[in-house]
């Protein structure tokens, strides 16, 4: 191990503050878990806001939810689940130095992420046509207009923050794909890919919570 550590260090793959590659990997992985904890609290505020507002006007939230397009939501959920699967395969296969396969899997993941974003963009534009776009063009009437408005305010806040995460994820996964393709990430040094995978799973999990809260409750 030590010999290979020296060699990896010489190639810049083990930073000087670490004793060996194993320590570096464990440290990085621990770091991303702490980061994910931060992210959970970040989204936690939005979920808490959602809970409070929904308790204040349950009817409005149910009605608001009926304005969302469940087909889009479901397809998006499927896309993200699929992308989580592809990223998992990539993370597991890199150990065997399957460079092409892994790069292809990562490209697929990134493309799925892009597909998600595109679909969501389409969804937003539909909502715009239906005058649901809070702050831009919102015109709903009837007794629960206010509740619907709040629902859509939270819908945009939450889905936009989530989409931002997807966007970051696409960039990260794409970069990983390139690095794998170029052979910079290989069986002997997989840390960045593992971390990217964990991040992508978080993005996926957040959607798993958003999907029922946004699309399903009203039906």
């Amino acid at each position: 191990m030590n010999g290979s550590t020296a060699e990896l260090r010489a190639r810049g793959l083990v930073a000087e503050q670490f004793d060996d590659a194993a320590q570096q990997h464990a440290t990085a992985q621990f770091g991303i878990w702490v980061f994910l904890a931060t992210e959970v609290l970040f989204f936690g505020v939005l979920f808490a806001g959602y809970a409070v507002c929904r308790v204040r006007d349950p009817e409005g939230f149910l009605l608001g939810s009926q304005h969302t397009e469940i087909l889009f939501g479901a397809v998006e959920a499927a896309i993200l689940l699929l992308s989580s699967a592809t990223v998992t395969f990539a993370v597991n296969l890199i150990r065997f130095d399957e460079r092409r396969v892994v790069a292809a899997l990562l490209a697929t993941t990134a493309l799925l992420g892009i597909a998600f974003l595109v679909l969501h963009g389409v969804e937003y534009s539909h909502e715009h046509d239906e005058h649901l776009m809070v702050g831009v063009d919102f015109a709903q009437h009837g007794p629960h207009a206010r509740g619907i408005e709040l629902f859509f305010f939270l819908y945009y806040a939450m889905t936009l923050y989530h989409s931002l995460h997807v966007l970051v994820g696409v960039c990260v996964i794409g970069t990983m794909g390139v690095l794998v393709w170029r052979g910079r990430i290989r069986g002997e040094y997989t840390t960045p890919l593992v971390l990217a995978g964990l991040y992508w799973h978080l993005v996926d999990i957040v959607w798993i919570f958003l999907f029922p809260l946004m699309y399903l409750i009203g039906r």
Binding site: A37, T38, F42, G44, L46
Partner: peptide, 8 residues
Amino acid sequence: LATPVLAM
């Protein structure tokens, strides 16, 4: 654990 709450 607290700072993200402020940020959001």
